[in-house]
Design a protein around this nucleic acid. Structure first.
Length: 581
RNA sequence: GCCCUCGUAGCUCAGCGGAUAGAGCAGAAGACUUCUAAUCUUUUGGCCGCAGGUUCGAUUCCUGCCGAGGGCGCCA
């Protein structure tokens, strides 16, 4: 059995079901990659036999789509892989294969190139034949069913309601939401979830900070600062009157805690919503304690033999699963440690039917990964499969080339709202999504606020707006796509643009598999550039005084297919696709 | 000391083992009587941190070193 790996590569004897090729490739090639792969294998075997050679073929005969179109429709590295066995140089052997295969059905010509690549050119229908299909699929072009049937829980942001969402959280809001969109486009059933920590010491510190501000006292040690503390404490004072400060201390603190958290959380939700990020589930940590789910989870682990008691505390024997140290689950004072709720939370997600729990964390929490994975194993699950943790590096705010120091205590953290206010939702989301999560990210507010190409988002959006204007102009000329003739699209920029459009489904698949939304952004920049170059060379509407010709209608369809892909890509990033700029 | 991520053009960053390492910005020179010049064309600029290893082939995988950021609580 053969199955395709992204563009090319085929592995024999796989027990994986055959997956249909990305739409488009079949249409444009008379010879499918499977057939080509088999043809090469047969040719090489025959060639070896004729020469009396014993050959052991690699288990995989890779047939891949070359980056450079001049390198053929497909390319294989088989000659380089086998040359050593035969004692020939790869180019020489490649030429032998080329000669042998040159009369095969569907093959136009073969070339040996570079260190020994065999480039294969097929008799093909015009590449442009794919365009009507792209347009008719519209907003679903690029989607697939590769994750069909998978229930995924994507947890991200999950910032404590003790302050506004800072830049790191904002990065995850943008990337997480985009990732959810991309995974969904590939058939996954995704739930966006926000873990709402309304329990524990940080919340207490938040309450004391609010109370202190309201009563005009100094902020407590390890407390929170910043204008939002004043704002919220003022709102609480207004609601209850100054008398609240005279209540018994515990009672007053409880009011500041409960209402402060509620207000802060409402603010966070609003910021995220304004940012275009909506969660399906806000999960309250407190509910895990109240429902005894924490106790239940610990009991289950104890039954599995992974819990022990020492020094008056309850421990998870996480070292059994590769963690550096065993972890305290219930402290000796009887209070649950942070991880206790996480045990129950993970179990809860699995009980809700999720095959995969994906959690996005900042680099400052990466030390938490090992114990979470150990916990996953302790429940009898498979780390990396049932539980996946994505780590995102820090975001720096740059000013004049140096990072601005931020401190929660001093309240100098740059929140989501400030970023959005300065540069707008589109530029903010795009900037936070176009880099790999593995890279530290520097945000320069001044550069982002500029409406120039310091800001690639405008480059992409402008391309989209341009396609719409071209569409409108074509309509005023009465140009239609009814008489589409693929062979009329033969300019080199047209070939390039069509090739880019065809690439889109594969990009989405890779982005989804690797959990890397930035690949979509980078692709869109390339697509936009390819479009702009086409626009510069090929007109959709005739020059003044000239008649409308068949080529114009065919180009209009290419223009429309570009609109579709730009719009689909931008939507997956949560960035608007304006019709006019 | 241990763990994670990063190190690619002057800057910000792409590059899921392949061919001549790319884009934007910045620098230089051009293109609007023609669908949006937020665009396009040409051009300058690289020991892909260093040293080994695996491979037919390494910027990519492995090991070590150097440098940057982050993390190593009965905190959350």
């Amino acid at each position: 059995m053969l199955y395709p790996l992204s563009y090319g590569g085929y592995i024999e004897n796989s027990n994986i079901e055959a997956i249909p090729l990305d739409l488009g490739l079949d249409l444009r090639m008379d010879l499918t990659p499977e057939q080509l792969s088999k043809l090469i294998a047969d040719s090489v075997k025959q060639l070896a036999e004729n020469n009396g050679f014993e050959l052991s073929l690699p288990h995989e005969i890779a047939v891949e789509r070359p980056k450079n179109r001049e390198h053929g429709d497909w390319s294989t590295n088989i000659a380089m892989q086998l040359a050593k066995q035969l004692g020939k140089n790869p180019r020489e052997f490649g030429q032998e294969i080329a000669d042998f295969m040159s009369d095969s059905d569907g093959v136009d010509r073969l070339e040996v190139a570079g260190p020994g690549f065999l480039n294969i050119f097929l008799y093909t229908a015009s590449a442009a034949s794919i365009l009507p299909e792209v347009v008719s699929q519209g907003s679903s072009y690029g989607s697939s069913e590769i994750f069909s049937g998978q229930k995924m829980n994507l947890e991200f942001v999950s910032a404590n309601p003790t302050g506004p969402i800072h830049l790191g959280g904002t990065r995850w809001a943008a990337m997480g939401d985009s990732l959810a969109r991309i995974l969904t486009s590939q058939g996954a059933d995704v739930v966006r979830e926000y873990y709402f920590n309304d329990h524990g010491a940080q919340i207490d510190r938040f309450a004391r900070s609010l109370f202190a501000r309201a009563s005009g006292a100094e902020a407590p040690e390890d407390g929170y600062g910043g204008e939002y503390i004043t704002e919220i404490s003022d709102r609480i004072l207004k609601r209850h009157g100054k008398e609240v400060l005279e209540y018994p201390h515990d009672e007053a603190l409880e009011i500041f805690r409960a209402e402060g958290v509620e207000m802060m959380f409402a603010d966070i939700k609003k910021s995220l919503s304004d940012f275009g990020v909506e969660f399906d589930v806000y999960f309250h940590e407190n509910s895990l304690h109240e429902s005894k789910a924490v106790e239940k989870a610990i009991n289950q682990l104890r039954k599995n033999g992974h819990i022990f008691d020492k020094d008056g505390a309850v421990w998870l024997r996480s070292t059994e699963f590769g963690d550096d140290n065993d972890r305290v689950v219930i402290k000796s004072d009887g209070e649950p440690a942070y991880i206790a709720a996480d045990l129950a939370y993970y179990l809860n997600k699995r009980e809700r039917g999720f095959d995969r729990a994906i959690i996005m964390l900042g680099a400052d929490h990466h030390g938490y990964v090992q114990r979470m994975m150990a916990m996953c194993s302790a429940f009898g699950d498979t780390p990396g499969e049932n539980l996946e943790i994505l780590i995102g590096q820090m975001v720096n705010l740059m000013e004049n080339g140096t990072p601005v120091r931020m401190s929660k205590r001093a309240g100098t953290v740059i929140p989501l709202e400030v970023l959005v206010e300065a540069v707008g939702v589109d530029a903010a989301r795009y900037a936070l999504t176009r880099s790999s999560a593995n890279s530290n990210l520097d945000i320069d507010l001044k550069a982002l606020a500029k409406k120039t190409n310091d800001n690639p988002v405008f480059y992409v959006q402008y391309a989209h707006a341009r396609t719409i204007q071209v569409e409108n102009n074509a309509a005023s000329f009465g140009i239609t796509v009814d008489e589409f003739e693929p062979s009329l699209l033969k300019h080199e920029t047209e070939n390039a643009l069509i090739a880019k459009i065809v690439e889109f489904p594969a990009i989405l698949k890779i982005a989804a598999e690797n959990r890397e939304p930035h690949r979509v952004a980078r692709y869109l920049e390339e697509l936009a550039g390819t479009y702009h170059r086409w626009y510069d060379n090929c007109r959709v509407t005739p020059l003044a005084g000239k008649p409308v010709e068949p080529v114009h209608g065919s180009r209009l369809l290419l223009n429309r297919a570009t609109t579709v892909v730009l719009a689909n890509g931008l939507r997956l990033l949560g960035v608007s696709a304006p019709e006019r700029m």
